[in-house]
Design a protein around this nucleic acid. Sequence first.
DNA 1: ATAACAAAATTGGTTAACCAGATTGGTTTG
DNA 2: CAAACCAATCTGGTTAACCAATTTTGTTAT
Lengths: 236, 236
Amino acid sequence: MKIEFLTRDENRAVQNEIIAKIRDLINFKNLEPGDKLPSERMLSEKFGVSRSSLRETIQKLEIYGLLKSRPQSGTFIADIGPIAMQGMFKDILELEAPDFKALVETRILLELKTCRLAALRRTEEDLAHMKEALDAFADKVNKGEDAVQEDLLFHLSIAKASGNSTLNMFMLIITPEIITNFEKYHVCNVDRERLGLRIREHEEIFEAIKNQDPTLAKEKMKVHFKMLYEYCYNIE
Amino acid sequence: MKIEFLTRDENRAVQNEIIAKIRDLINFKNLEPGDKLPSERMLSEKFGVSRSSLRETIQKLEIYGLLKSRPQSGTFIADIGPIAMQGMFKDILELEAPDFKALVETRILLELKTCRLAALRRTEEDLAHMKEALDAFADKVNKGEDAVQEDLLFHLSIAKASGNSTLNMFMLIITPEIITNFEKYHVCNVDRERLGLRIREHEEIFEAIKNQDPTLAKEKMKVHFKMLYEYCYNIE
DNA sequence: ATAACAAAATTGGTTAACCAGATTGGTTTG
DNA sequence: CAAACCAATCTGGTTAACCAATTTTGTTAT
C-alpha cells in the first residue's frame, strides 16, 4: 500500500526531473518555437535516462501542448513563444496533486455550465441518452440499491449534451476520482427519503434541459448541488 | 502538413481500438472493480498490438482514472463500479477533438472562477508572482511589442493563486491551444489604445484580488473578457 | 496439520536492436 | 544554372530480450 505511493511519487519525481532538463535545454540552447528538439536517442543519453522514460515525458508534455511529435521527423516545440513556454514549464513543475475539495469545487463549476449549455444545445439523441441514464438511476434507487454510478452517469450525459468537448473531457477526468471519494466518505449513504428527492431533482433538471430553459436548468442544478455541497463540507 | 493529421488520427484510431478491446475484455470477463487485468504481454498478444502501444493506452486510461498500474504486480481496475466503468469507456471513445469555440468558452468559465477564488485565497507569494507577470505584460505593451504570452502568463498566475490545483491544471491544458489560435486568428492585433485599456483591466483585476474582493475581481474579469469575447465571435 | 521459508514463475519497467517513412545532400539531367 | 531525382542518413515508432521486485507455490520443519 505504502509502496504504491512511494513508487508513484518516485516515478513522478523522475519525470519532473526530465521535464526540468527539457526546459533547461530549450532555455539554454535558445530554441525558438517551431524548432526541432534533438532526437530521443540523443536526449536520453544526454539526460542519462531510458528512452522510454523520455518518451513518456514527451507524451505528457504533448498533453499540455508544449511539444508535438511527428513520426519519422522529430519532436517540435509548440508555437507559443519562449516566455509562455518557460512560464508553462514552471507552473507544470509546481503543480500539486488535487485534493477532494478542489475536485468538488471544480465539478460544481463545470456542471452549472454544462447544464446551461445542454439546455441550449441538446439534440434529440442527447435527450434519449439522458433519459436512459435518468431511468437507470431511478430504478436502482427504487430497488433500494446503491446508485452512485448511475448518478454520475446521468451527470456525464449532461456534459456530453453540452456540445463542448473540452468541458466534457474535464468532467470525464474528474469523475472517477469523485466516485471513489464519495464511496470512501460514504457520501452516498443517505436515507430513502432524500434519495427520492434526488430522483425528483434529476427529473427537474432533465425537464428544464428538454424544454430548452437554460436558466431554470442551472437553477435546478444549483439546488441539486446545494444538498451535496453541505453534505460534503460536513465531512471535512 | 496533411500527413501529420493523418498519422495523428491513425494513431488515435489505433488507440481507440485498443481502448474498446480493453472495455470488451472487462465487460465480457465480468471483471470486478479492483480485479487485476491480464498481463501486458498477454493482452498485447491477444489484441495483436505491440506492447508499447498497449502500455501507452493504459497510461491514457490511467489519466482518466479507470486503471491503476502497480510495478511488478499488475494493472488493476479502478474502484468505480462496472456500470460507471462502461459509461466512462463509452464517453471517452465518443469524445471528439475540441474546437476553438469550446476552448474560449471553457477558458472564460474557468477564469471567472479562478479569479474569484484567488481573491479569497491568494497568499503574499501569489501576489508577488502576479505583480511580476502584470509588469512584464505592461512593459511589453508599452514597448509596442506583441504581448500575448505575457497576457496569458498573468492569467495563469491567477489560476495558481486560486489554490485549486484541478482548475490550475485545466487552465494549463487549454492555454497553449488558446495562444496558437489567438496568433492564428490575429486576436492580438489590436490598436495601441485598446492595449492600454487592457493593461488597466489587468491592474484592476490585480487590485481586486489584492484587496480580497472576490465579487469585484470577478466583475473586472468579466469586463476584461467582454471585449475579448466579442472580438473572438467576430472571427467565426 | 500448520506455519515458515525458499525457489520458481509472473509482473511492470527498462534497455537495446530493428523498421518504415521522412529528410537531406549530392549528383545528374534538361 | 536550376530543377529533378536518388540514395545515404536520421527520425519516431515498434519489437524483442532483459531486469528487479513481487507473488505464488511447493517443500520442509515444527
